[in-house]
Design a protein around this nucleic acid. Sequence first.
RNA 1: GGGGUCGUAGUUCAGCUGGUUAGAAUGCCGGCCUGUCACGCCGGAGGUCGCGGGUUCGAAUCCCGUCGGCCCCGCCA
Length: 587
Amino acid sequence: MKRSGAGTLGVDDIGRQVKLQGWVHRRRDHGGVTFLNVRDRSGIVQVVVRPEDAPAASDALAPARNEWVIEVEGVVAARAAEAINPKMATGEIEVVASRGSVLSPSAPLPFNVDGEVDASEETRLRYRYLDLRRKDLYRNLVLRHEVTFDVLEYFHQRDFIHVETPILTRSTPEGARDYLVPSRVHKGSFYALPQSPQLFKQICMVAGLERYVQIARCFRDEDLRADRQPEFTQVDVEMSFVDEEDVFELIEGLFVSVFAGRGIEIEQPFPRLTYAEAMARYGSDKPDLRFGLEIQELGGGLAASEFRAFSGALADGGVVRGFRLPGAAGASRKQVDGWGKLARRHGAAGVLTLRRRESETVFQVKNVLGDDELTFLVDALELTPGDLALIAAGPERTVATALGALRVAAAGELELIPKDRWDFLWVTEFPLVEWHEDDERYYAVNHPFTAPDPRDVDRLADDPASVRSRGYDVVLNGLELGGGSIRIHDRAMQQSCFELLGISAAEAEERFGFLLEALQFGAPPHGGIALGLDRIVMLLAGADSLRDVIAFPKTTSATDLMTEAPSRVESGQLEELGVVLAVEPED
RNA sequence: GGGGUCGUAGUUCAGCUGGUUAGAAUGCCGGCCUGUCACGCCGGAGGUCGCGGGUUCGAAUCCCGUCGGCCCCGCCA
């Protein structure tokens, strides 16, 4: 007899003889009759075991406990009206067992896999295969599979070619730390796991593939967060003979199509913000546009203020900015303290409150602002009675970042973030490079292969910090979903950009020689993007951690609690690789 | 590298101003139960209080260190 899915059975099957194979989800033994909820990936159905009618089945199934794997044959029967369970998809029927057997017993589980999560993350990760039996996680894996499938289908329909690039590749330190793999054949040499297939996909363009896509596993040896895992999956895309608009249109279409598949309508085209606008108005290069709370420039009316925190910051070339929190004038001391703490964590000196009451405006520091200044602030911040404003002063970058963090935190606390909104946007015109004080050199904001904006290219030598790049990010609800750029396809331009980054010709030759070489053999203009598949699925699943959409995720310290990777290895293995440990292994 | 927080039966937690034998729920084991669906009732077993050190007559409780989970800053071209 063919196996039936437990969750597929219904009133149409009444009278049918069926065979179930699955897990005992729950067992209720009433002495004279036993109910077994049998679960497989399709769902759950109730099996009734009656010792009087089917003594053999009853004996065989008697030892079965939660999560034992059993096989049951029986007839689908309608439940009596009063026995119908409306909470169960299959609640109108049950399977009356005529035969049964245990296929595989189970030790008692460390935690329940039915109902709500009641175990710690640590326990769940150690027994990941049990946690994955949970309906929610299973659904997330299915969602991920379907999204992956839809993505590939979308690109396939548009003549993209899926190409697998190497996992064992070359270390190109200039960005995240690499995971290294020692070579046995070439002792003392190392492969690196790719941080992204960036150079390979560009070289695919030189190879004339024109349209490349890859569901690409990437690796970065950096500290983790809820939205950052050491290995993650990118939807990696590259195209020849395109400009920004082609990439935007393609990717917007992708999101429209993938989200439509989940019943979510996305508007096209996505709004765009330049990096400068995003930082000024939202204090972030990945602003969450589901809510307002736009940051206002307040320097104009405060330059002559007697309040030194304001006038001093402005005199030092800094800024004073703030934003309005509607109806928050009653914010508690504790809440305000929390905001101050958050601001300081982001490097600001703190944050000051301005409360608009019915008849007066109260600044946190008493008697330092004149009436005209208060009036100016009320106007600039568009405060109405009952509102509160958060104001910060200091160096532009710090103020922007701190207010950006406050904007998000306050919106969350005050429940100003609407649910079920999907606010995509493009952030464009990133700076090409950024000066790093600690090692006194420029670093690429995106990566060293990003093309400079032709409008700014004449300043490349004299004022590189002011040069914009042809890079862009796609952002959804405050989360960076991906980034890309139009690349440099001209060897000379690539060389001068390396130079700008303090990479000498010899060094560039050593590290990126293969790219420079390729660029001299008819490299087409090209550009692309890489999207974080894990993050996309996380948002679609409504999860708040990447761990919930990755089958076997790692902990915050980059370990796998199930396999206990990373692990020590036998000395023989190290010897064979020519590796000697300079430090005692931990633990 | 830094900050916060947590770590006590299999699991989730309570206990923490130091003081008899460390509790609850759930799970597990045994018994009873013919319509439950988080079944119910009765009984039982189950502990390196993360680990190490210190203070003390006495430490789950206080102190120091360390390990691990989670969140955040730095970092993530």
